[in-house]
Structures are given as C-alpha cells and as structure tokens.
Simulated assay, not measured.
Amino acid sequence: MTTLPALSVLDLVPVRSDQSSGDAVRATISLARTADDLDYERFWMAEHHNMPAVASTNPPVLIAMVAGATSRIRVGSGGVMLPNHAPLVVAEQFALLEAAHPGRIDLGIGRAPGTDGVTSWALRHGAGGVSEDNVTHFPEYVDNVIAMMDAEGVGVRVQGRTHVLNATPHATSVPTIWLLGSSDYSARLAAQKGLPYVFAHHFSGSGTAEALELYRSTFRPSPELAEPRTFLTVNASVAESAEEAYRLALPQLLTMLALRSGRPLAAQVLVEEAEKRELGADEQSLVDAMAQRWVIGDPAGAREDLLTLAATYGVDEVMVNPVAGAHVGTEPGSAPAREETLRLLVS
C-alpha cells in the first residue's frame, strides 16, 4: 500500500447545538488525545471570534490545555491573527508555552482578523481594532515576534535609550514559526523571510497550486530554514461508508453555506437536523461544490484522496480538519465521529 503523507490535525473547537462551550472544549481535548495516540504529527487550533459555532477564540489558552493533556504531539496555532494582538503579548505567550513544553510548540501566524469589524475593534479595547496600519505593518510585527522570543532578546529604542526586551528570561528553545495564508501575500512574505508556510486549502479551495509555487520559487534560505517547507489543510469526514461520511459532513457544509451566503450563523446542527433542511438549487450547487473539495468517504476512498492531494501539490504533510458532525443523543462533551475520522484515516 502506498504510504500516506504525514498527517496533522486542525481544530476550530466547533460548538454543536447540543453543546456548551465547556462541552466543546472537552471534546477537543479528547480529540487531541486521540490524535496523540494515533501518532499524528501536530494539533493546531485556529483563532476565530464572536462566532456561535466556533469556540477557538484564544489559541494560547487552548494550546496550554491540549499540550498539558497530551504527551508527544506538537501543539500550535493555526493561527494567531497577529493584527489583533501586540507582538510582545504573542511572543510572551508562546515563549512560555515553549518553556513548559519544549520542542512541541508551533506558532502559526496569520494576517486576517478572524472575525467581524466590531469584534476586531473590541479586541484592542476600543482602540481601533484591526486597522489598515496594523495590516500594513504585518511584516514588521512578524519580525518583532521572532526577535522578542530570541534568547538574547531584542533592543528597543525608547526616548533615545536602548532597552533589552525579552519575551521570557533564560529561554533555551523557541517555537517553530509558520506563516499561514489563503492568498499569495503570506506565501511571498514567508519565502522572503525564509519561514515555513501553510496554505489554507480547507478554507479557500482555490489558488493553492499558485501560492505554493510562488512560495517555493521565491524562497530565500534563512538561518532557521535552508529549503522551503510547506503543507496544506483540508476538511475531512470519514466513516465506514461514503454515504455515512456525507451525512456526517452535512452539518458543517450547512454552516459553511450560511457563512458563504452571508446568512446569520448559529451553532452547528446535528446530523438529523441537517437532513431536514431543504435546499434550493443554488444552495445545493454551492454545497456540492464545497463537498467536492473536501475529503468525504470511506477509509479507502479518503486515503486515496489524501494521496492525490499530496501528489498534486507536492507536499509530504496534510493537515486534516475533521468536520464530521454528531447524531442526536451523542454525549455533549464528546465528538466520536471526529475521532473516528482520525482513526479510519490511519487504520
């Protein structure tokens, strides 16, 4: 049998209609332990705000919980949306996480706000939110985070004097820093700075080949990285039959349908609730188009899809976002179909 690429996990801490935020977090911790036991490479959590179906508002807090509940797997952010935060705060958070779990922490950095404009404004205590200035200075902020986490610290000039700034005292290692994106901007910046890069294929679904080619063809070696290093993300729902896998994917497909069509968002519905939803022709067409880009199927079919993805885009790692939903009666603090997706992919 052809060897699968290395597999990792992306998690948004989805919140179902039968769950509280606490239930969703408990399900994520259980999912991470499953990934750890199955030898997945890494477990990343995204940053999203003010969304009724997503509880991953604070990656550093979640990373601390997941890293403490697992023993081997790398844990990180997919990603921290840097324009939302002061670079020093991010550097301090991840320097401490690396100190507590050396060699296991990834800092994935993104440029998008991950939320609506009002929430972006509130993230900076009403001081302007994600402004054009924040986005314009994104490359500088990336440099600041990297410099502040260095064991030697960084010199900062304030009122004519240079002050040494350290994210944490006596650091012995630093997290691996990745740039994330769904357009060519971060691909170009990662190549310029000699950083590893991840394309959000699970979200965009288009432009993947162009972004990865741009990254590889313009890559400049750095002290941290001699050659381009990249992988991509994909949504996945795997079950014993392709029919059941699609049923389990339907709640997330409906959530994405609402997001793409600008409709009010709600907690993720259960499978039986999703099946009662009648779709118009245009809605069904959009759902079908999204499903075509996802990995939805039985174990053999899903593994073949992953192999095709890896070969098509020339990557040796794929990060799976397990989107399988839950049936009525599922224990709220669990996500058995998401865990089963991970198991079936490597069985």
Rank of each mutant, 00 (worst) to 15 (best):
G129T: 03
Q292H: 13
M45K: 03
L179S: 09
E132P: 12
A167C: 04
D305S: 14
A24C: 02
P60W: 01
G128M: 03
G262L: 06
L265K: 02
P14E: 00
R263V: 11
D298F: 05
L123K: 00
V90L: 08
V154Q: 12
S204G: 08
Q192F: 09
L97T: 07
A35C: 09
P332R: 01
K276C: 06
Y215T: 05
G153I: 08
M65Y: 10
E278R: 02
E41D: 14
E304Y: 02
A112Q: 06
S77H: 09
A239W: 01
S56R: 11
D316L: 06
G126T: 09
I177W: 03
R16C: 06
F231W: 13
G160P: 07
R42V: 05
S182G: 14
S20F: 04
G333T: 13
L38P: 02
W178Q: 06
G79L: 08
P322G: 07
P87I: 00
G22Q: 12
D37N: 06
V142T: 08
A151W: 07
D11S: 14
I29N: 09
P113C: 07
L265I: 10
P175G: 00
N235M: 14
A242Y: 02
G325R: 02
A69K: 10
L88N: 01
I109S: 15
L253C: 06
N50K: 02
A326N: 13
N58G: 10
D23A: 03
A53H: 13
E340W: 00
M319C: 09
